[in-house]
Design a protein around this nucleic acid. Structure first.
Length: 826
RNA sequence: GGGCAAGUGGUGGAAUGGCAUACACGCAGGACUUAAAAUCCUGUGACCGCAAGGUCGUGUGGGUUCGACUCCCACCUUGCCCACCA
């Protein structure tokens, strides 16, 4: 007999990984009449070895894919690499090599790691975003966006890392510092390429309602991110010139309490407003000071708000009152109109600022709990509901009603206009780095900005580039790249040297898997119509906003082009939890990582897969435990040994009804477990409870002996076969080997249909009834399933324990829950 | 400040209105062994009791119900995400 030990495991896993490749078991047919199932996991950045987070993510997805395959679906389960990005370039600088070389070496290593885990990918669809056959379609999509006015160039204040010499996305700035080099990030005015994601803000928000199979918190995060605010744009007038200053507020009900106005330091009105006045020096000094601050420093937690008076006044359109105009750091140019009306009594930020600078306050919403409260008594702004006071004709209205009426009145009187503002900003995609998709644009002194014609795609990354980490983007230093003839006039022109943010690449890769070799188009619309949307998407919560929002944006854009026919790319989303060790997230910097390779070397991929699925529900955090993984291995050993020792050919047919005793119990348990495991895998992927069910069945099998009886052996065999089939999506290598050992002829256990169960084989003859008195457990009785109620009552009341507890008491109620429980109320 | 999630044995976790702690880890005892490992068996929420059995017990306090880990209200704690968004 072969033991389930390190050597044997290695032999089996290698053997089946080889056979799966050789027989192309997981190659997805081009077309099929079967229902489709697109199972996708977030593709990795190829940094080298896979880590436990990858293992967990991809194991979960693999079980789903294999389960659906056995259920008869035509499954698409691809894998690729999100291969552009800064780490490759930094590695190139450090090791004096080329980013491509480093990246492809990492990909090779990663692919090897993934194969060792036994994942059921269709490897013929593998893709890497850094390959020109992929990124040319990035360029094509970009050109389409440019054509539709959705890709545009604008000058704006951006995050800039002086050390990495590139712009950064907001999410790459951690507490004012560059995520990679930890140097302070500064704001810089630059002309950059943007994608007009805000064009789809409404649809992106509205269609969140369709995503009822997404985790609610991801939906909530996207909602917050898109941030739709209803309010009023109010027209204040400069007292001096009569010019209009637009101010946005969501609280028009507080307009009568506005006691000053604040402009963002970057507001274009600031400079002309103070020019030549006695306030110019102080105001411009303040503007300069704020300009020096990094964005995250400026919004950092504390309540201190700084600002200066401009010496100017603006007129409140509702009461003609001139109120002072300030410039302060707590007002941001990027949101609203970059100017606010300040109502210190009903906005905490304004309250703090007003206290600090001794500005006037006026209560206009009465706190129903403290109606007499005066401005002097206020210790914080009152932001709750109440009735309008000191609000002219609107006095006495509940403020929610006041909001509506004041807004309508202002619009009618031309004092403002009802407006919607979004938090969502357009997406800055320019990066001043080499290792990304070149933005396919040309600057001609005569013709201006000219797109590269489609026929000239791809704009390839030049090879003749040195990586020194100095002097800006390597692309701008490549003469052969930069110098180009203008496609319009043919004269000397210059290429755009910025590359695209890598989130562009990952915003549509799920479509490229559908026809990965197509060299005529980004993807085949007909095949996309079959495969889209992705039925199950699995990945980390860290992508809840960025990648998942960008992908939704791209899908909507591609639908508008008529290339896809779905509004949303991902029907179901599962965000798997983190892998922890000693209560902390595994990370290299903390030094608490566990290398999947080392675990595979000792226990094999099957044990690792089983443990990671068993230790916690997929959405929850998973605490790594070196002892517990031993338990997973022991369980697989038991299954392995059981087949080898006790499985004997026996083909006798039988029916559940005709079985007796423990054989009948085993067959019933088998049917029950099939039902439960199928449900657990279908509804919410409860792998942990599915596994515990198989363990229960296995415990029963271990206690059962065929005693040389062919019928009993047949029942036993059926139970063992069921265990192997139910486990096969989870621990595929061992199950393939056992399936073969048991004499089955299929070329792979993954081609065997998922086991079914019979309802009648779940029925019991007797049930255990729990007997409670006043809700407290007092006794248990075994009774026939269909016992009449009066007979049950007699049996219960004659029970010794029950009689003792009922002594001297009156039975008021007798509640029966069929086949479960009796509760006697006394 | 806002949003979301979660609080159950020594540990990971199970139970979504009906036996709280399934399944597993750990621990203890036993069998096998010269011994150990492996394997197998038994036990394992707390307290009282020789036992039968009883009392308490799912973050805290209330409520609904014949019956609450589960539903409702309030609070506490932890985790994650967002945040001068006007």
């Amino acid at each position: 007999m072969l033991p389930y030990n390190t050597n044997e495991i290695a032999r089996i896993e290698k053997k089946w990984q080889g056979l799966w490749d050789e027989r192309q078991i997981f190659k997805t047919p081009e077309d099929s009449r079967r229902p489709k199932f697109y199972c996708l996991e977030m593709f990795p950045y190829p940094s080298g070895k896979i880590h436990m987070g990858h293992v967990r993510n991809y194991t979960i997805a693999d079980v789903v894919a294999r389960f659906k395959l056995m259920q008869g679906f035509n499954v698409l389960h691809p894998m690729g690499y999100d291969a552009f990005g800064q780490p490759a370039e930094n590695a190139a600088i450090k090791h004096k090599t080329h980013p491509a070389q480093w990246t492809y070496a990492c990909i090779d290593q990663m692919r090897g790691n993934l194969k060792r885990m036994g994942f059921s990918y269709d490897w013929s669809r593998e893709l890497a975003t850094c390959h020109k056959d992929y990124y040319r379609w990035n360029q094509w999509i970009f050109l389409k966006m440019f054509e539709k006015g959705l890709a545009y160039k604008k000058s704006s204040s951006v995050n800039w890392c002086p050390s990495c010499e590139t712009t950064l996305a907001n999410e790459e700035v951690i507490q004012g510092q560059c995520w990679r080099c930890k140097n302070d990030v500064v704001q810089k005015d630059l002309e950059q390429w943007y994608l007009k994601i805000t064009h789809y803000a409404g649809a992106l928000l509205e269609d969140l309602k369709k995503l009822d199979n997404w985790p609610s918190r991801v939906v909530a995060m996207q909602e917050n991110w898109i941030g739709k605010s209803y309010g009023v744009e109010i027209y204040f007038k400069w007292q001096k010139t009569g010019e209009i200053l637009r101010v946005f507020t969501t609280r028009p009900d507080t307009i009568f309490g506005a006691t000053y106005v604040v402009l963002a330091p970057e507001h274009p009105f600031v400079k002309p407003l103070v020019a030549g006045t006695g306030y110019e020096q102080a105001v411009m000094d303040f503007v300069a000071k704020v300009g020096q601050m990094s964005k995250s420093m400026r919004v950092s937690g504390d309540d201190r708000k700084e600002g200066v008076f401009t010496g100017q006044y603006a007129v409140n359109p509702v009461n003609g009152e001139p109120i002072p105009v300030w410039v302060a750091d707590y007002v941001l140019m990027e949101y609203g109109t970059g100017a606010i009306m300040a109502v210190p009594t009903h906005d905490q930020r304004d309250f703090l600022f007003a206290k600090e600078h001794c500005l006037p306050m006026r209560i206009v919403i009465q706190d129903p709990v403290r109606p007499e409260m005066s401005v002097e008594e206020m210790t914080e702004a009152y932001e709750g509901e109440g009735r309008q006071v000191r609000s002219g004709a609107f006095d006495g209205l509940p403020n929610e009603e006041g909001k509506k009426q004041i807004a309508r009145w202002m619009e009618a009187e031309g004092k403002g206009k009802i407006a919607v503002y979004w938090r969502l900003r357009d997406w800055l995609i320019s990066r001043q780095r080499y290792w990304g998709t070149p933005i396919p644009m040309i600057y001609c002194p005569a013709c201006g900005v000219v797109p590269v014609p489609e026929k000239d795609l791809p704009v390839e990354l030049p090879e003749d580039v040195r990586f020194t980490g100095e002097g800006g983007s390597p692309l701008s230093q490549s003469d052969s790249f930069v110098r180009v003839a203008c496609p319009a006039c043919g004269k000397d022109a210059r290429r755009e040297t910025d590359t695209m943010a890598t989130f562009f690449d990952s915003s549509w890769y799920y479509l490229r898997y559908i026809s990965p070799c197509d060299d005529k188009q980004a993807f085949h619309p007909g095949q996309a119509a079959y495969w889209m949307p992705v039925d199950q998407y699995i990945g980390g919560i860290e992508h809840a906003i960025l990648h998942l929002l960008y992908s939704r944006f791209f899908t909507k854009f591609l639908k508008d082009l008529g290339l896809v026919n779905v509004d949303e790319p991902f029907t179901r989303l599962l965000t798997q939890g983190m892998v922890l060790k000693d209560g902390e997230v595994m990370s290299k910097s903390k030094g608490n990582t566990v290398d999947p390779d080392a675990v595979i070397a000792k226990y094999g991929a099957d044990t690792l897969r089983l443990f990671i699925l068993f230790a916690a529900p997929p959405e929850d955090q998973l605490e790594w435990n070196d002892n517990a993984i031993d338990g997973s291995w022991k369980f697989l050993s038991r299954v392995w040994n059981c087949v080898q020792q006790k499985y004997r050919p026996a083909d006798q047919a039988y029916a559940y009804e005709n079985l007796t005793g423990d054989a009948k119990d085993l067959e019933r348990e088998r049917n029950f477990v099939v039902k439960k495991v199928t449900e657990d895998l279908s509804n919410g992927f409860k792998f942990n409870t599915a596994i515990s069910q198989v363990m229960i069945l296995m415990n029963r099998i271990d206690k059962f002996s065929a005693d040389g009886d062919p019928l009993r052996q047949a029942v036993f065999n059926q139970a063992v076969r069921t265990v192997v089939l139910l486990l096969s999506p989870l621990t595929p290598h061992m199950c393939e080997e056992l399936w073969q050992m048991m004499g089955n002829r299929e070329e792979s256990v993954s081609r065997v249909p998922w086991p079914g169960y019979k309802e009648n084989a779940l029925e019991k003859d007797v049930v255990l009834m729990v007997v409670q008195i006043n809700g407290k457990l007092r006794s248990k009785l075994e009774v026939p399933v269909n016992i009449p109620e009066n007979e049950l009552r007699d049996r219960v009341l004659s029970d010794e324990n029950i009689q003792r507890h009922l002594e001297g008491k009156q039975v008021k109620k007798f509640i029966v829950v069929p086949q479960k429980l009796v509760n006697i109320v006394v």
